[in-house]
Design a protein around this nucleic acid. Structure first.
Lengths: 140, 140
DNA sequence: TATTGTTATACTCTATAACTATA
DNA sequence: TATAGTTATAGAGTATAACAATA
């Protein structure tokens, strides 16, 4: 594939993905994106505010605020780190797990409706592409 | 395809697209998204602030601010509507067209780099999928 | 009266700088 | 001295309400 063809493909893939993301976002009413992604990150296991901040590439104060709000809403638990009295260990609470599942359901719901009009062949093509895209986007 | 399979596919496609969008956004330094999309919208032809606001699903004051900033930066032209003295007609300026092209180049550049590691077979699969996704997402 | 665009005001999420309490 | 988390303060971008000029 020539560089020009690659550039055109990149443009088409990017545009379709960004349109999709925007539509999903427009159809989301629950838990705000920045709080949702923190809960999703905590599925990998407990963490600290500082670690979450660097993983999400936001400032320490921004993450501190998010974590405080999530705690106020009962979506996470925070316990003192036994090894370091300055740090606190953040983990998903049962409510947080439920909120995460509900958020995913809502975010997927719009997508499901759109896919209902596709043929089985188109759906198979999308399944293959989703795998490739995920690999491409997770690289590095 | 069963409803469960459809839900799983929707989830995978959504996740891949949202990851991609986020990575593109993180690698964007020029023109902010809300200004960029206004310029892109104006490619379809001249418009008014009110029309742009409803097309972008943003409040009238928010769009007014965006349009004023774009005018200050010389990226759009505004002329009085000859048919209605309250309205002003907004259109892309030559600088605006250039900024749009530069913004697209920047946004695509990261994507091109990611695609370089793909096989030709994978690229063909993505081309097919991009077309399907665009159709799905543009529906309604 | 209704509508186009704007100003006034406030809320959310973000950032940098400064503080506290540990290490 | 350096680090984890917070508070103080400020800057984007957004919204609703109220206004001006015109329809």
């Amino acid at each position: 594939m020539t560089d020009d063809e690659l550039a055109e493909l990149a443009h088409e893939v990017r545009l379709a993905s960004q349109k999709l993301s925007r539509r999903v976002k427009d159809n989301t009413r629950t838990l705000a994106p920045h709080l949702f992604t923190v809960l999703a990150r905590l599925e990998d296991g407990p963490s600290t505010a500082g670690e979450l901040a660097s993983r999400e590439r936001v400032s320490a104060p921004a993450m501190s605020k998010s974590v405080c709000e999530l705690e106020d809403r009962g979506l996470i638990d925070r316990i003192p780190d036994p090894a370091d009295a300055r740090a606190k260990i953040v983990s998903l609470s049962p409510s947080g797990k439920a909120a995460l599942a509900a958020g995913r359901r809502e975010r997927d719901a719009w997508m499901v409706e759109q896919l209902r009009d596709c043929t089985d062949e188109e759906l198979r093509a999308l399944r293959v592409a989703a795998e490739i895209l995920d690999k491409v986007v997770s690289a590095e």
